[in-house]
Amino acid sequence: MRILPTGDRAVLVEVADRDARVALATHLRRDPPPGVLDVVEGAATVLVRTASADHLKRVVDDLRRIDDPRAATRAVTPAALDADAAAEVLLVPTTYDGPDLASLAQHLGESAEGLVARHTSMSWVVDFAGFLPGFGYLRPSDPGQPWPTVPRLATPRKRVPAGSVALAGGWTGIYPSASPGGWRLIGRTDLTTWDQFADVPAQLVPGRRVRFVERA
């Protein structure tokens, strides 16, 4: 675990692997030290943002006592988290008619039907969020399951409609609102994944399980 400086109010913690990251973020969210304003996960990092430089000093002291976040947070092992999250699988009814579906399937050396079948048979989990409010980066929930790395568009589209189901890198995602974007669009859903005025604004929170269901 490495603690990297990030200004006078935050630190970035680099951890060994995804399990350690999830364990550390969950630990900090369930029992936040005084003055912690925000805990944000990246692919291999956890950001801890505090209200003041004094709070930050104390948080860093606490973090330094954690050698292995998994040992420090045995009560919230990723397995336990997965069991929690699995109780609430978000089903996403999807029409697979995206403008990039055919060309992407060809690029991957398979049929469009084959790619759709793989996308719908897979169980996904929100790894972390970012890019836009309510945008979740979904990875296969079984890390052993093969899923291709998909290149982003060389020139991003100026406007991707809300509800677009897309692929990029090793991820899949759902555009929560209309925005410019460079992910490959394979389908669309009517499901609302983001409403800033709702009691629960985001559906795709880290740890949430997701399945895509093909709609004719």
């Binding site: 973020a25 969210r29 304003l37 925000d38 805990v39 944000v40 996960e41 950001l47 943002r49 972390f128 969020a129 970012g130 890019f131 836009l132 409010p133 309510g134 945008f135 604004p201 985001a202 795709l204 929170v205 880290p206």
Partner: peptide
């Protein structure tokens, strides 16, 4: 609005 970085919302 601090505290919502985990769902992609900056302060």
């Amino acid at each position: 609005r601090p505290g919502h970085g985990a769902i992609g919302v900056p302060t």
